[in-house]
Design a protein around this nucleic acid. Structure first.
Lengths: 202, 202
DNA sequence: AAAAAGTTAGAACATTTGTTTGCGTTTTTG
DNA sequence: CAAAAACGCAAACAAATGTTCTAACTTTTT
């Protein structure tokens, strides 16, 4: 049996190569890197990795290998949401962010910039970006992004969600702030559940 | 002048194609998608985009186009660091994580899992992953990862860094905890400065 | 309307690159 | 130890794909 380390080395190389160049290596590139003297050997290696399910490969195409584990998810940043005073989430499409798929998977993810201090006790600070999983309902204790229009103000906000005695409670994680208590039928819309957070100290 | 919209459509297509397949399209793939009847035309388009700096392309190579904006950085997760009791950072290489290059750039980045509550007031919670920029010095107020060996205990820890009166102060951001005060020559080693944070609510 | 510039097409060409075959060499197996 | 399997190599082949050329067509300019 061929030394498995070598196969994983190859996998690493393919990954590195893709990162650096934006496209996969050829069989001959692999030869050079791995000090393999024949393209047939490299070709073999590739097929092993394919059988092991670690590599995708389309036959007869040039540079058509790709590492199975796509290690990042592209998630759109769609605007800012205020955690304090509810202001309408600006639906600015602000480009895509790559997040590690080891942490975040599935469809319907998006990012929102957080403005305000209302979730500070939950470790969500002003300026953080939250990763939101799109869903229209939530369970008690979830941190959610919710939109409401109670006639006075409207907008999106980040709060911890509770359903209590037929009412919806949006609870800011900040000792100095009050809960929002709303009727079920008051037009509260859950946009999604907060599943992650990204912060960068400038 | 050729309709620019069409060029941007092409750029979008290349992006989409790469996302879906893990490798870039060929000139002929582009023809099909854009309803272009000649490879020469598609070839032209590619060169325009290259001149505009929106596309990288290596000559004579197959599938060797790549969209300029490389949107993610690969950062290794190298272990766990305790924010409370200093325990040695397990140098487990735990694979690479993709982080958005819009937020994190440059070399010498790594990730550490945080254990403990000592930085809770700075919004760094137990289980968070911190993004660390490798550097051997720090400025007052920086949050750093530091190693020390004072004879009693040794290990790595996350603390806010101050240099005061010839001593080094490692300040936990947790009201219930004490500062570590160390001599300059006591063998404190700054591993890096915390520049970001990644959290995923399980 | 004529000329010029820009754009597309079709075909041929040049190269890169995936794939196959057969033969030594090494390692495992009985 | 012999047979078999696994492995690696070189060379040749075939296909995919980048590149170039010239002519036709379209739009803009004079």
């Amino acid at each position: 049996m061929l030394n498995k380390t070598r196969l994983y080395d190859l996998l690493d190389f393919i990954n590195r190569y893709c990162d650096e160049n934006g496209f996969p290596p050829t069989v001959r590139d692999i030869c050079k890197e791995m000090s393999i003297k024949s393209t047939a050997t490299a070709y073999d290696y590739i097929n092993r990795l394919k059988e092991m399910g670690l590599l995708n490969k389309t036959e007869n195409k040039k540079r058509a290998v790709s590492v199975t584990r796509s290690d990042s998810v592209r998630v759109p940043l769609i605007g800012t949401v205020t955690a304090g005073q509810p202001i309408f989430a600006t639906e600015n499409y602000d480009g895509y962010y790559a997040l590690p798929s080891a942490e975040f998977r599935g469809d319907g993810l998006f990012l929102l910039r957080v403005q305000g201090e209302s979730m500070i006790d939950a470790g969500i600070f002003d300026g953080d970006k939250i990763v939101v999983q799109k869903q229209s309902d939530a369970e008690n204790g979830d941190i959610v992004v919710a939109m409401f229009d109670d006639g006075i103000s409207e907008g999106a906000t980040v709060k911890r969600f509770y359903r209590r005695e037929g009412k919806i409670v949006l609870h800011p994680e900040n000792a100095t702030m009050q809960d929002f208590v709303l009727e079920e039928e008051s037009g509260v819309v859950i946009l999604g559940k907060v599943v992650g957070l990204l912060r960068s100290f400038s």
